[in-house]
């Protein structure tokens, strides 16, 4: 249980960072942290204490970890890579245009 709570705490740390930080790079990192916490959560769901890797062999009976969330985590890591790369590219282009990474100074849109 404590693991789940810490995992949720990590999620909240990411959320807090994404909401309160003013630096584009820090926001990107905070979103990354949120992603990690969810990946960790998926892995925690799959975990069974004392279980082995899910490879079946004839004549052997043992408890296995759930392989499906592990496959999901691989996919979600790739998706997060895509998003992080896109955000970083946008941040670089924004820096070229505005000469700053501070979001309080990047305010040409309003309304």
């Amino acid at each position: 249980m404590i693991l789940y709570l810490m995992c949720f705490f990590l999620f909240l740390v990411g959320l807090y960072g994404a909401i309160t930080k003013r630096d584009l790079i820090k926001i990107i990192l905070a979103i990354g942290i949120m992603g990690y916490s969810v990946n960790l959560f998926l892995i925690l769901i799959a975990y069974r204490s004392g279980a082995l890797a899910p490879i079946l062999e004839k004549g052997l009976e043992f408890s296995m970890v759930d392989p499906l969330p592990q496959a999901l985590v691989l996919t979600s890591i790739v998706i997060e890579l895509g998003i992080t790369a896109l955000l970083a590219a946008l941040a670089i282009r924004i820096y070229e245009k505005y000469d700053t990474l501070d979001i309080t100074k990047i305010r040409r849109l309003k309304g």
């Binding site: 584009l24 282009r93 924004i94 505005y98 990047i106 305010r107 040409r108 849109l109």
Partner: peptide, 8 residues
């Protein structure tokens, strides 16, 4: 610049 800002 506006488009990048909106996209981000």
């Amino acid at each position: 610049s506006e488009e990048l800002e909106a996209s981000f």
